[in-house]
Simulated assay, not measured.
Amino acid sequence: MRAESALFAGVAAFFAVTGALYGWLAAEPAGTVALTVAFLMSGLLALFCWTQHVKRGERLQDRADIAVVEGAGPLDFFAPHSLYPVLCALGAALFGLGVVFGVWLVLIGFGVLVPGTVGFVFQYGQRER
């Protein structure tokens, strides 16, 4: 993931430079905040990709001398089916509508969103690798 971390580090550097220039030249703070948040998000992605590269080493895609047949085989575990994404979407929709229509709907949305998110995260936590 070395290439991805370099890509996101370049994006973060771009947002840092443009955010500094915008903050210096512009009179309104909203654009500066937006560019700062974009810098932080792309920097976080660069840090994550670099950490994964250090932790797991080079991938097959990172090497130039690799043959296609060396990458054959199963990739990873993919969930066959789950209702938790639907529950998360319903909870997020109710939460968003609750911001518009009332606190009672926010509470219902939060009550649907939390179990959906917890179930979505931990549904395959006990499986054997």
Rank of each mutant, 00 (worst) to 15 (best):
M1R: 07
A3M: 00
A6H: 03
A6F: 10
G10K: 03
A12F: 03
A16I: 03
T18P: 01
Y22H: 13
A27D: 05
A27S: 07
E28T: 07
P29W: 10
P29V: 11
A30Y: 04
V33G: 01
V33D: 06
L35I: 02
F39C: 15
G43Y: 14
A46G: 09
F48P: 00
F48E: 13
T51M: 12
T51L: 10
Q52Y: 12
Q52K: 13
H53T: 13
K55L: 04
K55Y: 06
E58P: 02
R59C: 04
D62F: 02
D62S: 15
A64K: 12
D65P: 01
D65W: 11
V68Y: 04
G71W: 03
G73Q: 07
P74Q: 05
F77K: 09
F78G: 08
A79I: 13
S82C: 08
L83M: 11
V86Q: 09
L87S: 07
C88W: 03
C88S: 10
L90S: 08
G98M: 07
G98E: 05
G109A: 06
F110H: 04
V112Y: 03
L113D: 05
L113P: 02
L113W: 11
V114D: 07
V114N: 06
V114S: 10
V118S: 02
G119K: 08
F120D: 00
F120H: 13
G125V: 07
R127V: 11
